[in-house]
Design a protein around this nucleic acid. Structure first.
Length: 1048
RNA sequence: GGGCUUAUAGCUCAGAUGGUGAGAGCACACGCCUGAUAAGCGUGAGGUCGGUGGUUCGAGUCCACCUAAGCCCA
């Protein structure tokens, strides 16, 4: 019947075989066909960028993403999983620049935009194969044959449609944003790029005096490290709630923050103290005269919470064109944006003295000029980190560029509202990281002055300035001045399309920008289906998603872009549940990075330990949102503990099932007819199933995995170990049938429960355990339904009492250990004290198990056995605390003073005891007393948690002989194995030994024969050809020999 | 600088709603067991529950502040 399985574990070849099977039999496809008419459970794949190699972190996201859809499929849903690739964006361009050996926009233009974007397109799939290989190997079932690709025309067209919708709502506008900008490359940099280019440099640090208007020789003392921004100054900012002072020094008065007085050199006198808001609105004279025309609108003091007291003077100079805070304050106060710097970082004619000079180079001259005019308080050098262009090492300028924005602030309230309904896992993301981000939402600056991206679909009329958003290829063709054939929706092709202005008939040209690729990926719910141009129904059925899952860094990335776009277009959240994952770290909790050289190639683990092991570790080690440490040893441990144990059970089962040629179809036995152990296992299986389902339904993967792990352990180290003998015995009676059926049913149910977690090993077991006897069963475990919870098989009482029994056994073993009496030596009696009489009643049915497990003839239940224990009393704080509150310490004192035994007796007899505590009557029931026993010297006792055992260590001659017999059995069994006999081989046994051995064999010989499959036990020197050994049998020397029947 | 998260044994992690000797697995030491056997079981050692203060009859658990780490942002 069943294929016999080697106990040695070698999972990798098995997994490879299973992969072949899945592929050949199209199992993934069948899981969908199987649920063709079932309700959808919608999953969205967050598209990976295919221009980098996948690492261990990507494995985590993939195996988590895989689990839930597999589970939901087995529950009866149809879970389509369309793959996707994120293909646009600056990283791709950078990769190509590197590859071509060019750098920066001017060189790209020179190389040719058309050729350049062709290269980008090619580059995107450099690692596609690598990703596919990893995805397949870890068992992530996703359709990678028909993925959505963000650079495809159909995808871009859907994005255009979305942008036009937003445009029509009036939520798309052109504005300014201060961005880190490289004047040499002529481009702004992404935050990621900026982060790469910080260097420690010395910059000027100047303290400038801004003359207060209407008060002679009085100045605001202002600090800056960018003197070149001073000509563009429009305001000064102070901190509202900080204390400022006016001081007198050398006949001048200076205003600065009290906390920053340390910057003042020499003697001074404090004249006045006042809070920052007193300064608000005060006018001052600009230190340079280039923009005097703005004197009505600018040059006064404002307040801002970004002003810090860590450095400078507590008064910050504001140049809205050159700083983020500055720009924001400028917007808030309606200050002018002065930008006398061109795109190459040189002063314009507006700043006549330094026109044409690179601004950073002008710093020296500016300082000199201020000094000459007596406006410089002091000048120093200042060491700090400053961003440089990582390509050309030019210092970056923070520079206001015109950009396109989506007015997300317009839907802020709706975003907050919809967010409340999302099932975030973990929950704190909702009101924490994500919620906070939404609270502070700013308009989305989504244009990029780059090449490889979805072109921004706005055309502007050169005549009348009319702007028009194009929403489809059709529309573009209709408005085009010249006929357009097939056109790729990328630069430079779309740039060449000239539209006729609907207002004036003039030429309309497309704006040069492309869009943020986050807008691309955030559009995937509809763009993956080319909605609304086709697949209307398909989209409707698959929106919103029931489940998505990505790493925490996507909070402001994909989670946000998806959410905003759906809110703008459909006024609903695009996903119902999000499982947020933490990052995968190395063994020491450090982020894996190439730089540190601590990146673990997932293939190392996949090739050695296999995908199931890796998956299991990632599920069970810690909740997915916690950063998880990843290293081989950890995976090995998880593998041993779970897969190894499961494999052991499986090989045990198949070993005996094939010996007995057990056929599950031939038998059926109502669980009620089976033993307690059997019913216990069936109960454990079902209560665990319940727990696993509940946990997975709440996306709590770790709890589910841990429950499964506990179950495997219970199955192995209790059920199988306890029931081994039932499988050994020769006749196939009801008891043996019950054992086989129970273990069989348990295994089959278990592998279905575990299938979404460890899809490979469960498939392997399924093929043997189910498909062999039942060829009509579903072809794959993954085509099965998730097992139903058989509520009628759950017996909580039974589980509870089994737990007690195991506890008692554990204590018994500890007691034997203490007494130094090995388990094989039978003992006559053990006394057991339980927590309460109810438990005793329960435990009675399991007494046999305890006796057997501990090799003890009799269990006696005792209560208040003062000969063995001294008793201690404590109040049950949890019960009495709420009743008596402050009186508790006094009650505890009173109880400890009383005679424990008497008190307990009284409580038992009368139902309660009455104590007088500080004049108050306190009634205590037996329940409310916490009785603890402490063992007395001289007895072999053990106790824990209210359970106690006392071992009777007397070994009578009878027991001694039995011990010897057990010992002989064990040795013979050992030798059988050592001699290499098969489990079912019959043998002859020979022995020599003293009279005690003789006697033991006399009394127990038949039993030994039965256990060891011996035909005879003969007192004789082992003959030629037998396997012999000399042994010390509990102090008696003996020579034993075994010989296989028919082996002569 | 701000937000979020985390901090329990050498390591990995459990410890609803506060209830009074703080748990598991791994690793270590010792022992047991031996037809599931490159497994299994027991015992032992190992913890000021990151720190300080507070609320409470009672705090690993609640509150405040601080420290460290991670992530995101500035």
């Amino acid at each position: 019947m069943f294929k016999k399985v080697e106990p040695t574990m070698n999972f990798v070849p098995i997994e490879e075989k299973v992969l072949d099977f899945w592929k050949k039999e199209r199992i993934f496809e069948k899981t969908l066909e199987n649920r063709k008419d079932a309700p959808h459970y919608v999953f969205y794949e967050g598209p990976p960028t295919a221009n980098g190699k996948p690492h261990a972190g990507h494995v985590l996201t993939r195996v988590i993403k895989d689990l839930i859809p597999r589970y939901k499929t087995m529950l009866g849903y149809r879970v389509e999983r369309k793959g996707g690739w994120d293909t646009h964006g600056l990283p791709v361009e950078l990769e190509v620049e590197k590859q071509l050996g060019i750098s920066g926009k001017p060189q790209i233009e020179e190389y040719g935009v058309e050729e350049f974007i062709k290269k980008c397109k090619e580059s995107v799939f450099t690692y596609e194969q690598e990703w596919k290989r990893m995805t397949e190997r870890v068992g992530f079932w996703i359709d990678m044959e028909n993925p959505y690709v963000t650079y495809h025309n159909t995808y871009i067209e859907s994005v255009w449609w979305a942008l036009k919708k937003i445009w029509e709502k009036g939520l798309l506008y052109k504005g300014h944003k201060v961005v880190p900008y490289c004047p040499r490359c002529g481009t702004s940099l992404s935050s990621h790029e900026v982060a790469q280019g910080y260097e420690e440099v010395e910059d000027p640090s100047v303290f400038v005096k801004f003359p207060l208007e209407g008060e002679d020789s009085t100045y605001f003392l202002v600090w800056t490290t960018t003197p070149w921004t001073l000509p563009s100054n429009v305001a000064l900012a102070v901190k509202e709630d900080a204390t400022y002072v006016k001081i007198e020094q050398n006949g001048e008065r200076l205003i600065l923050a009290e906390e920053r007085l340390g910057v003042v050199e020499g003697e001074y006198e404090v004249l006045e103290k006042f809070p920052g808001d007193k300064l608000a609105g005060l006018k001052y004279k600009p230190v340079f005269p280039f923009f005097e025309e703005y004197k009505d609108k600018a040059f006064y003091v404002v307040t801002g919470d970004f002003v810090t007291m860590d450095e400078g003077t507590g008064i910050v100079h504001m140049a809205p064109a050159f700083g983020e805070d500055d720009y924001r304050m400028g917007q808030k106060y309606g200050l002018p944006i002065l930008q006398p710097v061109d795109t190459q970082g040189r002063f314009t004619e507006k700043v006549a003295p330094w026109a044409g000079m690179f601004v950073k180079d002008a710093d020296k001259d500016i300082i000199k000029n201020l000094k000459q005019r007596g406006l410089l308080y002091k000048s120093e050098r200042y060491l700090h980190t400053y961003p440089f262009c990582w390509r050309c090492d030019t210092p970056l300028l923070y520079y206001a560029r015109s950009s396109w924005f989506i007015k997300t602030t317009a839907v802020k309230e709706r975003l907050l509202e919809l967010n409340q309904k999302i099932g975030w896992h973990p929950e704190h993301i909702r009101d924490g990281r994500f919620g906070n981000f939404l609270e502070n939402v700013i308009d989305w600056c989504f244009s990029r002055e780059r090449y490889w991206g979805t072109p921004l679909n706005i055309w502007v009329c050169e005549e009348c300035g009319k702007e028009h958003a194009v929403g489809s290829i059709e529309e573009m063709k209709a408005m085009s001045k010249l006929p357009i054939g097939d056109i790729e929706l990328h630069k430079p092709y779309v740039d060449e399309v000239i539209l006729r202005c609907p207002d004036c008939g003039g030429d309309m040209k497309r704006v040069p920008e492309v869009i943020d690729c986050w807008f691309d990926s955030g559009s995937m719910p509809f763009a993956q289906f080319h909605y609304p141009f086709e697949n209307e129904e398909v989209f409707r059925e698959r929106f919103p998603a029931d489940f998505i899952s990505e790493a925490i860094d996507q909070t402001r990335g994909w989670f946000y872009s998806l959410f905003v776009i759906s809110t703008l277009l459909f006024d609903t959240s695009p996903y119902k549940n999000v499982l947020v994952m933490g990052h995968v770290l190395d063994q020491y909790g450090q982020k894996m990075s190439k730089h540190k050289g601590n990146v673990l190639d997932p293939w190392e683990v996949l090739n050695e330990q296999g995908a199931d092991a890796m998956r299991w570790y990632l599920y069970v080690a810690s909740p997915p949102w916690m950063p998880s440490r990843f290293y081989k040893e950890a995976v090995s441990e998880a593998q041993r503990r779970f897969l190894g144990t499961l494999w052991n059970i499986y090989s045990f089962f198949t070993l005996y099932a094939s010996i007995d040629n057990f056929d599950p179809r031939k038998y059926s036995l109502d669980p009620k007819e089976r033993s307690e152990m059997d019913r216990w296992l069936l109960s454990r299986i079902n209560s665990t199933n319940k727990k696993v389902r509940e946990s997975l339904d709440h996306f709590d993967i770790t709890t589910a995995a841990r429950a499964l792990e506990q179950l495997v352990d219970d199955m192995s180290n209790w059920y199988v170990r306890r029931c081994r003998e039932r499988f050994w015995k020769s006749e196939m009676d009801n008891d043996k049938i019950a054992a086989y059926l129970t273990l069989y049913e348990a295994l089959v149910t278990f592998i279905k429960m575990a299938a979404p977690f460890v899809p490979f090993i469960t498939e392997e077991l399924y093929q043997n355990l189910v498909r062999v006897p039942y060829p009509d069963a579903p072809e794959s475990v993954h085509l099965c339904d998730y097992p139903e919870v058989q509520q009628e098989l759950i017996d909580e009482k039974l589980e509870h009492k089994m737990e007690m029994a195991r506890k008692i056994v554990e204590l018994g073993r500890a007691a034997r250990n203490k007494a130094k009496i090995k388990n094989r030596q039978p003992l006559s009696k053990m006394m057991v004290q339980l927590r309460n009489p109810r438990d005793e009643e329960l435990l009675k049915d399991l007494t046999d198990i305890i006796k057997e497990e501990l090799n003890i003839k009799e269990i006696e239940y005792i209560h208040m056995a003062e000969q063995y224990f001294t008793y201690m009393l404590k109040p049950r704080f949890d019960l009495l605390g709420p009743k008596y509150g402050k009186l508790m310490p006094a009650i505890a004192r009173e109880i400890s003073k009383a005679n424990a035994a008497e008190l307990i007796r009284e409580a038992r007899e009368k139902g309660e005891v009455v104590l007088n505590v500080e004049g108050q009557e306190v009634r205590l029931t037996q329940e409310e007393l916490d009785i603890r026993a402490q063992d007395k010297e001289g007895f072999c006792t053990e106790g824990e948690g209210g359970y106690y055992v006392v071992l009777d260590t007397t070994i009578t001659r009878e027991l001694m002989l039995e011990g010897i017999a057990r010992e002989l059995t064990s040795k013979i069994q050992n030798m059988r194995k050592e001699a290499g006999f098969e489990v079912e081989d019959k043998i002859y046994v020979y022995y020599t030994g003293d009279s005690v051995i003789d006697e033991a064999l006399n009394v127990h010989g038949e039993e030994i024969k039965g256990d060891t499959l011996a035909i005879s036990i003969e007192k004789a020197a082992p003959p030629e050809g037998s396997f012999a050994r000399e042994w010390d049998i509990n102090g008696h020397r003996a020579i034993l020999g075994v010989k296989k029947m028919g082996g002569e």
